[in-house]
Amino acid sequence: MMIPNQVNESTLVKSLFEMAGITEEFVIQKLDDFIREHARRKLLFWDLEEMTQYIPFCEKTIEEKIIKQDPRWRQYQRRSGPNGKRIWLYEPTSKFMVDYIMKNWDI
C-alpha cells in the first residue's frame, strides 16, 4: 500500500493499521465479540430446564445420554435437599455438553 505525500493524521493511522492487518472489519468483529461476552447474563448454575433452553433439540436425551453416561457431571451436581431440584455448575458442565455433541453427533 502506498501512502500519499500529503497525509493527514487520520489517513496515516488508518494506513498503519491496515499494514498491520487491523482492518475496520477486524475492529468491528472484536467489538462485537466483546459486547456479546459482557452483555449476556452470566450463569453460575443451570438445571435440566435451562439446558433444554440452550440445546432444545436434544431435550429428551440430555439426562439419559449425556448426564447419566458421563461421571464428570456428578462432581458438579448439587441439590438443595434429598428431593430438591438438581443443579450443575455451568462452566465445566457446558464444556462437557459441547464435548459430547462434538464427539457423538454426525457432521
Rank of each mutant, 00 (worst) to 15 (best):
K30H: 01
D70G: 03
P92M: 11
W46T: 10
T52E: 14
D33M: 04
D70P: 06
F17I: 00
F57T: 10
P71S: 13
D106T: 08
T93D: 06
D106W: 06
F26A: 04
I3V: 09
F57D: 13
N104V: 07
R79M: 12
F26Y: 09
K65G: 01
E59W: 05
V13A: 08
V13Q: 05
L44I: 11
I87C: 08
K65A: 02
I87M: 14
R41K: 11
E91H: 14
K103I: 10
T93I: 12
L89N: 09
L44K: 13
S15D: 03
Q75C: 08
E37C: 08
I3C: 01
H38L: 04
I62C: 00
V13H: 07
Q75S: 14
I101K: 11
G81Q: 06
Q29Y: 04
Q77Y: 01
F45M: 14
S15L: 03
Y54S: 09
A39R: 15
E49K: 13
M1F: 03
Y54A: 09
D99M: 15
E18T: 00
I3P: 05
V98Q: 15
M102D: 08
Q69E: 11
N104W: 14
F57H: 13
I28L: 05
L89E: 12
I101N: 06
F17K: 06
Q53V: 04
K14H: 05
E91Y: 11
G21D: 06
Y90W: 13
V98A: 15
K68Q: 06
P71G: 08
T23Q: 02
N83H: 14
Q53K: 10
I28N: 06
M19K: 14
Q69T: 09
N83W: 13
T52Y: 05
G81I: 03
I35P: 02
E24S: 03
S94H: 15
P4K: 15
Q75W: 09
L44R: 10
I62E: 00
M1N: 02
L44S: 12
R72L: 05
R40D: 13
V13W: 01
L89H: 07
D33G: 07
P82M: 12
S10K: 00
R79L: 07
R72S: 07
Q29K: 07
D99Q: 15
F96K: 10
R72I: 08
Q6W: 05
D32L: 10
T93W: 14
Q6K: 11
T11P: 00
K65I: 00
N8F: 03
M19W: 11
L12I: 01
E37I: 06
K103V: 12
D47E: 14
V98P: 09
Y100Q: 09
K60P: 02
V27P: 06
K60A: 07
R86Y: 04
T23R: 02
I107S: 15
H38G: 07
L12P: 03
S80Q: 12
C58F: 06
K65Q: 02
R78C: 06
W88P: 09
E64W: 02
E59Q: 11
R40E: 14
K68G: 00
T11V: 06
I67K: 02
F17M: 08
Y90F: 15
I28K: 03
R72V: 05
H38D: 02
M1H: 05
M19C: 08
D47H: 13
M51P: 02
F45E: 13
E59Y: 11
M19R: 12
T52V: 13
R72M: 01
L31I: 11
